[in-house]
Amino acid sequence: MIEKNIFAGFGGQGVLLMGQLLAAAAMHEGKHTTWVPSYGPEMRGGTANCSVILSDKEIDSPMVTRPTALIVMNRPSLEKFEDTVLPGGSIFVNSSMIDVKVQRTDVKAYYVPCNELAAELGNNKVANMIMLGAYLGYSKCVDIETVLKALLEKLGERKAKLIPLNREALLKGAACVK
């Protein structure tokens, strides 16, 4: 198993966090993982992205030039990375923010209205968790409960009350791609 993902969106959409939670969950499940933040000229214009690799084997290069999955939260990110996805890979589109369709025909596209679904849960901030849930619903590379364990570590016990909301968001996202 090897998954090479790119998460991309505006700064503030929680894109880097999505990647970190996935990487931390992979680690907890005994997988090898790397997380590389956008660290280049692409940071201009307030867009952020990160590359996350999950693998059963030791990871050589942490760089992702051809992702197996692309998760995009805004339109510039889709336009920037669509062509890089490996044939047979998948693209997760936040359809709340992106009004165009994936042009490629050799990849699978999933449209997830993250912001609307988050609003249904009463908290716009969990749009990223909806999206992460959608990705997990498709790839099943790590368990949603492991992601929540990673989130709890990140938040600390003081903010543990936020876990149920995030669980709901992950599950709601996962349900979108079933």
């Binding site: 680690m27 090898h32 993982t33 790397t34 997380w35 590389v36 660290y39 942490p62």
Partner: peptide
Amino acid sequence: DGLIGQMMEP
């Protein structure tokens, strides 16, 4: 290199 500083690994 700066990447070693910024990236995360277990």
